[in-house]
Every structure is written in structure tokens, then in C-alpha cells.
Design a protein around this nucleic acid. Structure first.
Length: 366
DNA sequence: AAATGCGACAACCGCATTATC
DNA sequence: CGATAATGCGGTTGTCGCATT
């Protein structure tokens, strides 16, 4: 026996909301609030909608100060940074982008940013559906060398984890490209770990976050790294509860409180200078990268990668060119970014992390 | 002009977590 | 303390409009 439905499916309307429904819901909530009970709300105002549907409509569309339209470079950068750090925790990411909803960000990632970063056309849903029925088609979708191994690996790893691996590899590839002429290239840096910075669930209250690994645990979020080096996302900013966000970062109509590049305003959002040494800060800082380039860290690379890649043979017409080969930190296998990631993800590449016997740990349990 | 493919976005679904009794 | 309801969240699907064939 499954879970009882939250509402009578037969009597509720589904599909797009009409302007009349929007007006009803908006007017009621603006006047009375939600009353703390979404399930009862539609009956109160005579809407033939599921309470969950009303909540979603309000949060994603009708709520004041919702931003629609194109994302700015700063917003893209924050999304990418956080996605690499924590994966598809859209609600947390959305908490850093006032006016944006998790649904918006999720859609934007899936339709635009992912392609931009991974540099290949993502298979359409139709193509993916075909691929599910035909393994050879799946390989075809993962065009390029190593498609078969990629498809195989995809069975073992969630798409989110896979994307994060690819993002890291591409960034690492760029890093190697940068360092091939640098003396430090002789000592390949440790790869940034891909562990999520916080347990999948439950997420503890902000003060309780105790990073297990300082290297993993700090996410430097730099809306524009060329303006803001070393701003860190504090654990408080990673609090999942909407209440926490609302109280600290309320989208106050009068306080349009996000001004990219403005440290004071950013502090309101939970960004604080890394120099504060906040022990609960979370970082996805690639220690070696930050150290080597004295301020040029992974997020600067990300910025360059997104917007300035031409200088290192990067994005051109949205297509990411072949990347330099990557070296496993143990000095072992030399792998190509696209071709062999499945090899080293299945092999026991040691990232020098805290995850057990050195086995690669995505930090994902999917 | 019609059919098809595709991208973008809104909305739904179901599971996990939290609150309440 | 367990059961149940409510809420939050992330993944998935439906739909629409535009581009291409």
C-alpha cells in the first residue's frame, strides 16, 4: 500500500495556471498569508488545485521579487561554483541568488549551463528515451571517443556526479594547460575532491557544520572573481531552511540586497571574507591551485573557462575543444579528460581525502 | 505548408524530512 | 514514541513555440 495522496486527484485541476487562478491565489496570500496550511488553502479560496500545486505556484511565480529572464554572469558563476561544490542542491544554490527559485536555477542549469560547461550537446529527452531502449544509441549520444565507457560509467554514477566529475576534469585540464610552462608543473597538484561539502541528508543547523576536511569544506563563491577574491560562503549561508534564508536574506522589496561585487551587500547573503577564518566556512577550494597561483583558484579558472576561454583554447562557439591529458595524482595512469574518466573513477584513485581507504568518494549516495 | 526536432519553462510526482498529535 | 499529516526538495514530464527539414 502506497502513500495516501495529498489530495483528491480526481477533483483537482492540473496543468498551467490561468490568470484568474493566479489572481485569486496572489490576492489571498497577500492579504492573509498562507495560514500555515497549504493543503487547506485552495479550498478556502475556491481553487480546484492541490495544495502543493498552490505552494509551488506561489514560490516559483507569484511571490514578490521573483526574477525572471536571463541570468547574469555573476549568477552563472555562483551556480557553477556551488554545483561543483555541493551538486544539485538547488534550494541551497537558490538561497545565494535572491529572486531566483530553485526550479529556475535547475531549469537553467539543465538547459543552458550544463551544455556550456560540458561543451557538448546534451541528448534531448527524445534521444535519451531512444537510448534507454537501445544501448548502442546511448553510445552514439555520448559522441566522441570513449562514448562506450562513458555510457557504461553512467550506469554506475548519477548524472549529477558524472557532470561534476567532468567539470572537475575540464577545469583540471585547464589547470594543467596553465601549468605546463610553470615550474610547479613538475609537482602535479592534488585534484580537488568531489565530496559534497555536507552530508546528503540531514543537513545540520549552521553552527553544527563541522567540515571534515578543510580543503573540501570551503566553497569560495565569487560572483566575479576578478572583483572578489577570497570571499567565502559561510556555513550559515548554506542553511537549508527557507526560514533561515528568509530571516537573514529576506527578499525585502526595499532591500534589494544583492549587488554583485558589493562586499557589504554580499555579507548580508552570508558571504564573508575568508580572512575571518570562519571555522564553519565551507570550501571547495583546490588547495594546490589556490596556492600555486597565489589567488588564482578554481573559481577564477571557472570564470575564465566560462567567459575567457579563448585564450587557452577553450570555448569557441560553445564547443569545448580537446583538453590536455590529465594525470592521476598518484602519478599513475595518464588519462584523457573525455576518454578515460570512467577508468579512473572505477579505479581507486586516491584524492588524499578523508574518505575511507582513499577510494574516490563522490559524496553522493545515488 | 506540414511534419518533425528541439529548447525552454512550468508543473507534477514521489520521496525524505519535519511537525503535530 | 510511533503514527500521521504537512512541507520541502529534486527529478521528471508535459506543453508550447521556434527552427529545421
Amino acid at each position: 500500500m502506497g502513500r495516501a495522496p495529498c489530495c483528491d486527484k480526481a477533483s483537482v485541476k492540473k496543468g498551467p495556471w490561468s490568470p484568474e487562478e493566479d489572481a485569486k491565489l496572489k490576492a489571498y496570500i497577500e492579504e492573509n498569508g498562507t495560514g500555515g496550511n497549504w493543503i487547506a488553502l485552495p479550498q478556502k479560496i475556491g481553487l480546484k488545485r492541490c495544495g502543493k500545486s498552490c505552494r509551488l505556484r506561489w514560490l516559483n511565480y507569484l511571490r514578490p521579487n521573483i526574477k525572471h529572464g536571463d541570468f547574469t554572469e555573476e549568477e552563472e558563476h555562483i551556480i557553477c561554483s556551488l554545483y561543483i561544490s555541493i551538486g544539485s542542491r538547488w534550494s541551497i544554490i537558490a538561497a545565494q541568488l535572491p529572486g531566483r527559485t530553485d526550479n529556475d536555477i535547475k531549469n537553467y542549469w539543465n538547459t543552458k549551463l550544463k551544455k556550456k560547461l560540458l561543451g557538448k550537446r546534451a541528448p534531448s529527452r527524445r534521444a535519451a528515451a531512444r537510448a534507454n531502449q537501445d544501448p548502442s544509441a546511448a553510445a552514439a549520444i555520448c559522441n566522441g571517443a570513449g562514448a562506450t565507457t562513458a555510457a557504461t560509467a553512467a550506469h554506475a554514477l548519477s548524472s549529477s556526479a558524472l557532470e561534476r566529475i567532468q567539470l572537475h576534469m575540464r577545469l583540471q585540464g585547464l589547470y594543467n594547460a596553465f601549468t605546463t610552462t610553470n615550474a610547479v608543473a613538475a609537482a602535479p597538484p592534488q585534484w580537488p575532491k568531489l565530496e559534497t561539502l555536507i552530508p546528503t541528508r540531514p543537513l545540520p543547523a549552521a553552527p553544527a557544520i563541522q567540515p571534515t576536511d578543510a580543503v573540501v569544506a570551503t566553497t569560495t563563491v565569487q560572483p566575479n572573481p576578478h572583483h572578489l577574491i577570497g570571499q567565502t560562503l559561510t556555513a550559515a549561508a548554506v542553511t537549508t531552511t527557507s526560514e533561515a534564508f528568509q530571516s537573514d536574506h529576506q527578499l525585502d522589496p526595499a532591500a534589494n540586497n544583492y549587488i554583485p561585487g558589493c562586499i557589504d551587500q554580499r555579507a548580508k547573503l552570508g558571504f564573508c571574507p575568508s580572512s575571518t577564518g570562519d571555522a564553519a566556512g565551507v570550501e571547495m577550494n583546490s588547495s594546490s591551485m589556490a596556492g600555486v597561483f597565489a589567488g588564482y583558484g578554481i573559481h577564477d579558472e571557472l570564470y575564465d573557462f566560462l567567459y575567457k576561454c579563448e585564450s587557452v583554447g577553450g570555448l569557441q562557439d560553445g564547443i569545448i575543444p580537446s583538453l590536455p591529458e590529465l594525470q592521476c595524482p598518484d602519478g599513475g595512469a595518464i588519462v584523457g579528460a573525455d576518454e578515460k574518466f570512467s577508468t579512473w573513477t572505477s579505479a581507486s584513485c586516491d584524492y588524499g581525502g578523508s574518505g575511507g581507504a582513499g577510494d574516490y568518494d563522490l559524496g553522493y549516495d545515488q
